[in-house]
Design a protein around this nucleic acid. Sequence first.
DNA 1: GCCGTTTTCGGCCCGACTGTTTTCAGTCG
Length: 579
Amino acid sequence: MSSMTNTKIAEKFEQIADLLEFQGSNPFRIRAYRNGAKVIRDYPVSMASLIEDEQKDLTSIDGIGKDLAEKCQTLVQTGSLPMLDELLAEIPKTVLDLLRVPGLGPKKAAAVHKELGVATLEELKAACEAGEVQKLKGFGAKTEQAILGGLSIASAANKRILWIKANAIAEQLRTHMNACAAIEKFDFAGSYRRGKETIGDLDILAVSTDADAVMDHFATFEDIASVIGRGGTKMSVRLENGFQVDLRVVSHESFGAAMQYFTGSKEHNVIVRGIAKKRGLKVNEYGVFKTNDDQDEYVAGGSEEDVYAALGLPCFPPELREARREFDWAAAGQLPDLIQLKDIKADLHMHTVATDGKATIQQMIAAAQDRGLKYIAITDHSKRVSMANGLDESRLLQQWQEIDRINEDLQKSFHVLKGIECDILEAGGMDLSDEVLAQADWVIASVHYGQKQPKAKITARILGAIQNPYVTMIAHPTGRLLNKREPYEVDLDQVFAAAAEHGTLMELNANPYRLDLDDVFCGMAKDHGIPIVINTDAHSVDGLDVMVCGIQQARRAGLTKHDVANTRTWNQLQKLLRK
DNA sequence: GCCGTTTTCGGCCCGACTGTTTTCAGTCG
C-alpha cells in the first residue's frame, strides 16, 4: 500500500518546476509540471488508487501526458523519483529559498547563485551587505536594496493568512475606501473573493476618473508600512503585519473585465483566454476585444456577466474559478447551483460549559435561533479528552435528561439533538459504551490523540468508528490545522469507501483553522455519494458565526444544498442515516 | 512537457511597473 498521496505527488512536481525554473529551462515545460501538480492536487480520486486499478489510464486526465503519468507511477510504486534526485544533486535545496524572496525571481536568483556562489538566505544577505550583488550585470544599488528589503520581510510576506483574518483587514479597508469621494465604486477581487481558505494578498479594484486622488486616499490608510510601488493605474503597499494590498484604478467600461481578471484564479484565466482566442477575441483587464489587423474593437467589459457572455460562458461563481471542473460543467450546462448560508437549517457540532465551551445549552439555543437555525446538536467531548473535562457516561446521561426537559419546554419551536463528540481511542474503539451511544440522537466520532500514528493504524481506527452502528458522522476527518498542523496520515480512499457502505456522514468543519474536509476531499466524498455536514464546532456563542467559512469551502467544492445533510429538516436528515 | 475541427509540430494568456537600460529584461499577478 503506497502512502504517496496526491498532495505529495503535487509537491514533488512543484519542486521539479522550481528547480527547472532555476536552471532556466523551457518555461512551457516548467508550466507543464506546475499544471500537472495542480491537476493532481485537485483530482477527486487518488493517483495511487488509479494506478492500483490498472484499468485507469492517467494520461486521460487533462494536463497529464505520457511522461507525467510515468513519473506518477514511479512515485507511487517506489516513493521517489530519479529525475528529481538528479536535479537535487545539481542544485542545493536551500537555493530554492532564494526564489521566495520578493523581488528575486528565477533569473536573478540563478545569477547570484552562479556568480557569487550564494546558496542560502544568510549568504544572500551577507552578499548584499558587502555590496557584491549590485556589481552583477543587470543588478544595481536599488535592486540590492530591494533584495535586502525583501529578505527582512521574506517570512511574513510569504505567509498566507486565514481568510477570516484577511476579511477583518478587508472590512477596515472597505470603510477607509468608502470615504473617498473620487471613487465611483470599488470591490475586492483575488483569492479573497474566491473564498480561499488562506489569502496571499488583497486586491482592490476602483472605478474613478481620477486615479491619483484614489491612490492618495489609499495611501492614508493607517496600517500601511511602506509603498511597494505606484504607477498611473496601480499601487501596491505593505501593511504593518507584512500583508500586501494592491489597488487598481479602472474605467467604468473596464470594471467587469478587471474584476474577472483580478479575481482569477490565474489558471482559470489562462483557460478563459484560450477560449477567447479560438473565437477571434482577446481578453485582458480592460475588456473583451475583437482582434482586428488595424485596431482591436471593444466588445464587452462593464460587468463580469458581459465578459463571460461574450465568450459564450456562464458567469462562474468566484468560488468555482479554480480551473478544476467548472468548464466541463459549463459545457454540459451543469454548473452546480451552489449552497448558500441561508440553506443551512442546523448546526450539529458544538460544545458547552459542561466541557470546554464558554456558553450554556440555553445560550447556544438562543444564539442558534438568532441565526435562523431550526435545530442543533449538543456534542460535548467524551471522558478521554480529559483536558476539556470530557463527559463520562453518567454526566452525559444527565445532560441528555436536561436536553429532554428543554425540548419539552421548546414545544417544537426548536429542537435540540442529544449528541456527543466521542473520542476514537488510540488503540481503536470508542470512548463510550455502545449501550450509551445507542441512546443518542447524533454521535460524532473524532480523533484527538495519537494523531501521528502511521497510516494503517490511524486509518483502521477511523474505519472502526465508521463501522460502529451508532456513529453518525466523522468530525474533522484529517485533523489538519491551517498554518499549524499537518493532516493525519489517514487513507481517505478507504474511509470514503467504508463511509459510503455504512451510511456514515462526513463533516466539513467550518472552523477557519480547520476547514476539514477541504474542498478537494469534499468533492471526493460527494463522488462517493456521502452527504456532507457543515458544522461550526462552536465553543462559544460567537463560534456559531464561522458557518460562513464552511459555506465558502463547500461552494469551492461545488456542493449544492442537496449534497449537504444539514440543509434538511431533522426528519428528512434521519432518512439519510441508514443505521 | 502537453496538446490537437489549424492533430504529431509548433504553438502555449496578458499587461503594469521597476530598474537598468538607451529599447528591454525581470518580476509580479
